[in-house]
Design a protein around this nucleic acid. Structure first.
Ligand code: MN
Ligand code: MN
Ligand code: ZN
Ligand code: ZN
Lengths: 147, 147
DNA sequence: CACCAAAATGATATTGGTTATCAAGTACAC
DNA sequence: GTGTACTTGATAACCAATATCATTTTGGTG
């Protein structure tokens, strides 16, 4: 599926008339090599370890591009720092976030998604995106013995 | 209900050993006098129009206090600028947000809330708060004739 | 009421994440 | 190979929010 995403980005780049650069390749590889929700700074540090010359402005710019290309999703959690995760083709998920340790659990719920559409329709809205974050304590942070 | 909120703040202030100041009274009054979702800057401007001496640092500080006291809720919409709204006693609502004109519609859905609890429980999380924002176009921004 | 310690205020500086600027470098169509 | 538009990286600028700190105010005490 990494290959798939690379193709998706190449397609987007072609359509937009973007040029192919070593920097974008490296950043895309670093991004695709992780399953986590990384901040731009974290991505930048990973990038720099193998390619010290790449500047963080380029990482910011490229992550915006990946989001526009539809292969990355930008998250804004509680602290106002952007994070990026993989955006899978037609899929979507929301997040459970531990306020104790920062752990993130992903979930999807068809029923909720349908209800969201219903609510929007009832108010005459057409939804283009949504965000649902559940904040709380993960099993570990709740305390040792609790189930 | 404004009186109620003032009492709630006074109770919180007493419990925390906070002192009673003219500035906090003014800011609380301005906040309670609106039904909207205001940014700190917007609140500051309203405050300044009747009380030019009050500084914006005090507005920031006081809004944090109102949130801690449980009578204001801080929202972080798309642009990263905090907004505050009234927090009613045991109530909760989520938001439909028009990406065209910025209009905000409030809604609540018991079924979704229950499902959220279920999902959290399934993953061993105990939820302390959540955020659900539906972004899209309001009836007006969708185009004139569309129902 | 006068006095004092602690809290609050307001002007300002600072922070931190992100974006804009711009000279220098690079890709790519011709 | 040339030319030009795109891209990059260093840096400055931006902006919301917070920290700092001298000054003022509060609320208790005598
Ligand atoms: Mn995720
Ligand atoms: Mn609201
Ligand atoms: Zn945790
Ligand atoms: Zn609208």
């Amino acid at each position: 599926m990494i290959l798939e995403k690379k193709k998706a980005f190449n397609a987007y780049a072609a359509k937009q008339g973007l040029r192919s650069t070593r920097q974008r390749d490296v950043i895309l590889d670093v991004f695709l090599a992780t399953r986590q929700h990384l901040s731009v700074e974290e991505l930048y540090l990973k990038v720099k370890s193998s390619h010290p010359g790449i500047g963080f402005a380029t990482v910011y710019r490229t992550m915006k591009l990946l989001a526009e290309a539809g292969i990355a999703r930008e998250l804004t959690l509680k602290n106002g720092q952007a994070r990026y995760e993989h955006q899978l083709a037609g899929e979507h998920h929301d997040h459970l976030i531990c306020t104790g340790c920062g752990a993130i659990v992903e979930f999807e719920d068809e029923t909720i998604e349908k209800l969201q559409q219903e609510i929007a329709g009832r108010h005459g809205f057409s939804i283009t995106s949504h965000r649902m974050d559940l904040f709380g304590l993960c099993p570990i942070c709740r305390g040792g013995t609790a189930g």
